[in-house]
Design a protein around this nucleic acid. Structure first.
Lengths: 214, 214
DNA sequence: CTAATTTAAAATGTATACATTTTTTGTCAA
DNA sequence: TTGACAAAAAATGTATACATTTTAAATTAG
């Protein structure tokens, strides 16, 4: 596999696990040395993580591991609310049984692996959402949603506590799917809105608790 | 100045002027040779233009200059409609006189330079919009809007005919500003919606005429 | 001691060289 | 001629080396 891809995944995971805690400044040299690759590879990866929001510029040298803020979490939630229901509505019209089936399978898969790591669970959850939006056939919209998910997953990834929410989330996913099967786009949209809102509120709560404890 | 930045601007402009027409496949080597820089620089620039939508992947080697489609233009318009009114609404609450002034100045500047190249005019127009949205204080939203504008500008940049629309556009900008001064957020939002819709329709018309002629 | 300036160290930008992958070309058998 | 396969060419990935910029340290004037 490409070293670039490997390093991308590894560094991202290390950031998520706070091996490089928020605020850390990572230079090309440092990373190249630490991960045993050339600076060229590091440059590419830094750039990718920058546009994914997993690193942020730090003056004219180095990149910084971003922190977490309630404000940012709320903004991400707001954007999800603005775009995901739209995608769902557009997708509902041309959703195929094949896709509904895919989504169903995914739910089963998630339910069957209750012991997954939080970030893996988050990834599967997003794949579920993603499949529902897929058939909106709007490449740019889908790209924006993927970007947003990247951001959100940075917040969500290492939240062990979020597991408490897993059951509620799974139930809502199932209901969402059921509504779509019935063709009740209206209700599905409303459910999606409250689903995203809940997730956002939970995240904010966790952040506040965590920041209060610090 | 950094060679990376120079090449970024130059290549973008060349794509806009169709020096590299849509469909052209550009390899690292080719570009490095043509512009007299090393492949490293080209790699960075290609990556940047990729994420801005000015190049698209082409198999496993080379990147392709994207074409234009009515569908894509409509999608971009849809996304603008979904996000820009939101930004305006959020911004309206904490907009400062300083910013209103800046916007006013920009309008004057645009009016004073009727002879500007289309892409320069487009850039100034966007700056006007951008200032209005600025004080929404939502970094991610603003970033999405900038990305969207990048895409739209690829369509708009070389459209000489779009100049016919300039007067209407300027008038609407002025009215928008006036409504904001009065604090009539409601009306301003409605005007913005129709403003974006008009721009989208014009773009679609131009594309259809152009593609019909081909 | 402070602050400004110079000097050294470190970091990034860029070019070149080599390794690996991908694409193309050319050959041969059916 | 066509299609599969092998060899050559081209393109990208990666490492190293050098140049330029940026940051940090040291020095000196006040």
């Amino acid at each position: 596999m490409l070293k670039k891809q490997q390093l991308y995944n590894q560094l991202k995971q290390h950031i998520q696990l706070q091996h490089w805690p928020p605020g850390t400044v990572l230079t090309q040299q440092q990373l190249a040395e630490h991960y045993g690759v050339s600076r060229i590879v590091v440059r590419d990866v830094q750039q990718a993580l920058l546009s994914d929001g997993w690193l942020e510029p730090h003056g004219k040298a180095g990149m910084q591991v971003p922190g977490f803020s309630v404000t940012e979490a709320q903004e991400l939630c707001l954007l999800r609310l603005q775009l995901e229901p739209l995608a769902l509505q557009l997708a509902a019209a041309n959703m195929s049984f094949s896709q509904l089936g895919q989504a169903e399978d995914l739910l089963g898969h998630i339910a069957a692996h209750k012991h997954l790591a939080p970030y893996q669970r988050g990834e599967l959850n997003w794949q579920f959402h993603r499949i529902l939006y897929q058939s909106c056939a709007k490449p740019h919209l889908l790209r924006l949603l993927d970007q947003l998910h990247q951001q959100v997953s940075r917040y969500l990834g290492y939240q062990e506590q979020a597991l408490a929410y897993a059951d509620t989330s799974a139930a809502e996913h199932a209901e969402l799917l059921s509504l779509l099967r019935q063709g009740d786009t209206e209700q599905a949209g409303k459910l999606l809105v409250s689903h995203i809102t809940e997730a956002g509120n939970l995240l904010v709560q966790l952040l506040q608790k965590q920041q209060g404890a610090r």
